[in-house]
Design a protein around this nucleic acid. Structure first.
Length: 735
DNA sequence: CATACATGAATTTTT
DNA sequence: TTCATGTATG
């Protein structure tokens, strides 16, 4: 992917300018497919060349995947030694690094733990005294948005406009107290607390400002207010250092306002608007040559985005020729859409669409607005025996069995991590039930201690029955022992032995088989667990055997590895190289590209998305009074806000610009709405694409072929399922 | 009253 | 797909 059309090592004039502007603040407006990663990596190389140490260069991204990719690209340019030392990390990892080093200055123990969003949800349910998941999730969203805007509890409370918001603010106050008691932080704190630390502690602030000689920020348009503040603090705009500015650290922000699609989670384009004002010396460079798409595709993209107000003028062009016209596909229903799509994929495979010969499945992507749209496509692709993957499927680390084990690791790393304690103490079940834990919780709360600390209090005996106490003590002793061993076990071999022993102690495998009614599922989970063990063990270093020999790498204790666990990337998306069609949401597709792209469900209401009601985190707008019909139902009377519409338009723009060679856009003439089907309206964005040739109707011959293929697929599918069924019966009989 | 099953509805996502 | 709600049954 991202194959540059230029000869290796060559940059176009705009790219060169961006790379060579080293002395001051620089904003690179990188249009889609304009070679932005190239610019960043070349700039890193250039900075090294001018004498900066690798560890003085910070490149900040949003995802671990992007960071890994960037390091990889940099490695090709500057070699493995330098690449390894470059500080290429996400905002969050950088935050962790800062807090582990200096968190104590704001009262955070160095071994604080990081709550993932499920943990947070649990704590919030607890704090709010509600078992309603949906409600807790709204609180979670609201609190996260507040934090992303840099608001603390007091500010949130003061700004709360509705009753719902006041409740959320109250829950937030208790939530923050809990976090402090647990010595835990949530993901948003990983940005906010380092910022607070720099603002409150001049010494640490100066040290971090001196640490970097240049700061690069990728996907700058996705930054939120707090991330921007942290960036400014790092480059020397923090209040604490105003008296002695020895010159700010130069920085490079790279982004594209036309691809800003995360406003709903706190990203703000204000950060782009403010940059020229707050850094008058800012050099703005636009990258407008596109190396990805052909003329028809690019023209459609430009035409759509032209309807948005412009922050910076920018128009993409390419030298790749006109290519194929964009195709519009009209469909009778979602099923019909999926079938026509399958037909198209088969045609592409046969080399009948576009000029190219045999296409790989991996060259094709189907993009849509909302996850649930994938369902029909999956069904039809399976029926046609076309391999596919769905992006954004739940990550490896979301799986229950992995979370179980992570809870144990978190607990030994930070004994005060109560959510981890609760999960670990109950998995596997060891006869410690709700009663016991509730009593322990009350006891701990009274003493303002964590659950684990309370465990060994001599006075606990008064609150609990002897048997319960014994169970708890047994658990506590074991956790302590495990912690001790984890601290002193290094190297992958010993680590693996320790971890396997631990699983045996827990009888975890047995537990999986007991709690899962299908043995097959239990088996799959157990194999996940073993993968996890291997993965941790590998990170403990020591002798590693790889192709090409055996290496001695730096040794880490299991304890150290466990400390980093919640922030580390999931096991790389294995099987990424396999030849499968991609199904993805538009959001998840950002930054990726395919030779052939289909945008599905480009309907009014779906692509400029319009929910049943206007939504904010807490705007679960109360139902209108009896007899009053609220606007914005089936009839599209209620207009969405201009901001919202513009973000939807940018989403469309992102979708279009994912395509390299061919693009098809499909929409539904009829949509199901509850029980009845209603007429579908093509998205306004379709008209905005200003396509001149439109081939919308299904050709009768194509239709015949599709029907025949569909029939064959059904026969095949039923045969396959029959075969599978008999096999399962056989397998069942065997066991 | 609690559990089992069916039915329907569904923004977008990372850390 | 998942999640929550409603109905029917014990």
């Amino acid at each position: 992917m991202n194959a540059p059309a230029l000869a290796a090592g060559t940059l176009n004039p705009a790219q060169l300018e961006a790379v060579h502007h080293l002395s001051g603040p620089c904003l690179v407006l990188a249009g889609a497919g304009s070679g932005k990663t190239r610019v960043i990596t070349h700039k890193i190389a250039k900075l090294l060349h001018t004498g900066l140490e690798p560890k003085q260069i910070a490149a900040i991204t949003f995802t671990n995947k992007a960071a890994a990719e960037m390091r990889e690209r940099a490695r090709a340019l500057v070699g493995p030694r330098a690449a390894k030392e470059l500080v290429i990390s996400t905002f969050h990892s950088l935050g962790v690094r800062m807090l582990r080093a200096d968190g104590e200055r704001i009262g955070l123990k160095p071994n604080f733990s990081i709550l993932d969003s499920d943990d947070v949800l649990g704590v919030l349910r607890d704090c709010g005294g509600s078992s309603d998941n949906a409600l807790a999730r709204r609180w979670q969203w609201a609190i996260s948005l507040w934090k992303n805007q840099g608001l603390d509890v007091d500010a949130a409370e003061a700004g709360a406009g509705s009753d719902d918001e006041r409740v959320a603010a109250r829950v937030m106050r208790r939530y923050q107290e809990r976090l402090a008691a647990y010595q835990a932080v949530d993901f948003d704190d990983l940005i906010g607390l380092p910022l607070a630390m720099m603002q409150r502690d001049a010494e640490a602030c100066a040290r971090w400002q001196a640490a970097f000689g240049h700061v690069l920020v990728d996907e700058y348009q996705d930054t939120n207010a707090v991330q921007y503040a942290l960036m400014k603090a790092l480059v020397g705009c923090a209040p604490g250092s105003a008296d002695s500015p020895p010159g700010r650290t130069p920085f490079t922000a790279v982004g594209d306002d036309d691809q800003s699609i995360y406003g709903w989670r706190g990203a703000t384009i204000d950060n782009l608007k403010r940059l020229p004002r707050e850094f008058p010396a800012l050099k703005v460079i636009a990258l407008e040559q596109n190396y990805r798409s052909t003329g028809h595709i690019l023209r459609a993209a430009n035409a759509v985005i032209a309807s948005n107000p412009k922050l910076f003028e920018k128009k993409l062009w390419s030298e790749l020729g006109e290519g194929e016209p964009v195709k519009v596909i009209e469909c009778d229903s979602e099923e019909h859409e999926a079938e026509r799509l399958v037909a198209r994929i088969q045609a592409l495979r046969g080399g009948k669409v576009g000029e190219g010969g045999s296409m790989k499945f991996a060259d094709i992507a189907v993009l849509y607005r909302a996850n649930h749209q994938a369902r029909v496509f999956e069904q039809k692709l399976r029926a046609a025996q076309i391999p596919y993957k769905v992006s954004g499927g739940q990550s490896y680390f979301d799986r229950a069995e992995i979370k179980d084990l992570c809870a144990w690791l978190r607990l030994i790393v930070n004994n005060d991590d109560d959510p981890a304690f609760l999960r670990a103490v109950t998995t596997p079940k060891r006869g410690i039930g709700h009663q016991t834990l509730a009593a322990l919780g009350e006891f701990a709360a009274k003493r303002k201690e964590s659950l684990f600390e309370a465990l060994f209090a001599p006075t606990l005996a008064a609150a609990l029955k002897g048997k319960a106490i014994d169970g708890l003590h047994e658990f506590g002793r074991y956790a302590n022992e495990l912690e001790h061993r984890a601290r002193h076990t290094t190297g992958s071999e010993d680590a693996k032995a320790l971890l396997l022993q631990w699983l045996q102690d827990l009888r975890y495998e047995q537990y999986l088989y007991d709690s899962e009614d299908s043995d097959k599922l239990a088996q799959a989970r157990w194999s996940n667990v073993l993968d996890f063990v291997d993965w941790i063990a590998r990170r403990c270093g020591g002798e590693i055997t790889q192709e090409g020999g055996t290496f001695e790498s730096e040794r880490h204790s299991v304890f150290e590895v466990a400390q980093t666990i919640s922030i580390i990337i999931s096991i790389a998306e294995r099987g990424e190289d396999s030849d499968v069609v991609t199904l993805s949401t538009l959001h998840a597709a950002k930054g990726l590209e395919w030779p052939h792209v289909v945008l599905a469900g480009v309907n009014e209401g779906l692509l400029p998305f319009k929910g049943p009601e206007t939504k904010g985190p807490l705007a679960a707008s109360p139902p209108p009074p009896e007899g009053v019909e609220s606007p914005g139902r089936a009839g599209s009377t209620q207009e969405m806000s201009a901001e919202r519409l513009q973000e939807e338009r940018r989403l469309m723009y992102v979708g279009i610009t994912r395509a390299q060679r061919t693009l098809a856009v499909s929409w539904l003439k009829r949509r199901k709405r509850g029980r009845e089907t209603v007429a579908g309206v093509p998205s306004r964005f379709l008209a905005e694409m200003k396509l001149d040739e439109v081939a919308t109707k299904e050709d009768p011959r194509e239709r015949l072929k599709r029907l025949r293929a569909e029939l064959a697929a059904r026969v095949q599918a039923s045969e396959a399922s029959a075969a599978k069924a008999t096999e399962e019966v056989k397998a069942g009989a065997a066991t």
